[in-house]
Amino acid sequence: MSDKLMIGGKELNSRLFLGTGKFPDNRLIPEVIKKSGAEVVTVALRRIDFDSEEENMLNYIPKECILMPNTSGARNADEAVRIARLARAAGCGNWIKIEVISDNKYLLPDNFETVKATEILAKEGFVVLPYMCPELMTAKRLRDAGAAAVMPLGAPIGTNKGLKTRELVKILVDEIKLPIIVDAGLGKPSEAAEAMEIGAAAVLVNTAIATAGDPVIMAEAFDLAVRAGRKAYISGVGAIKEYAEASSPLTGFLND
């Protein structure tokens, strides 16, 4: 059965997006990408440090992957826009994950600035995937601003706490006709499966894989969990019976 995810005119088979930060050794990344099945891979843009020898992340990412640079480091819309334009100029496609964080305590995204940046970048032809706090009105504004998907957090970034925002994410899934991609906070494959079961179109995982004892095996585990959750969602979860089967106290009057 074909169940492809369409974003920005691209057809994706894998619903697991992979972040590339915090790995103990970048040389693990090609194998992690392979085992995860991920087709969309996130990277960040940084100043080159001319004083030290640095590896280039692109050397570890297969050519056929879609690169999704993020705007990490941006504290407002203008900075995010600047980073996005630089990322595009680097010649790796036009996908951009908008990430605007002006809160250093919890690292929660700034929804207001994120909407502003989305508006500008969508008009410039970017495929915009904004990272946000799950909130319906913001999601609608992002949709109206031209976002290609909406990426609510499952829990504060890097916390591995799981799908703490379940109820709010479910509302986005039900109300927004764009792919809803749970980004940040998912710590275990079962939590990724949970996000997929409630109808998320994909999940983005970084810390949970990068900091696992064996990132390669964990990448595979997430791949399986995401597939399982997706299949559960499209097959329609069975009825939870909460009603009496025989008597009809509420509608008995209709039989009189």
Binding site: T20, N70, A89
Partner: peptide, 28 residues
């Protein structure tokens, strides 16, 4: 201002210029 790669050879660097050179690193 972003300078396109094909223009690098024809772009002289002048006294007082500010240059930012960036590359991709790991990120989520």
């Amino acid at each position: 201002e972003i300078v396109e790669r094909i223009k690098w050879k024809d772009t002289p660097v002048k006294n007082g210029d500010r240059l930012e050179v960036l590359k991709f690193v790991g990120g989520g």
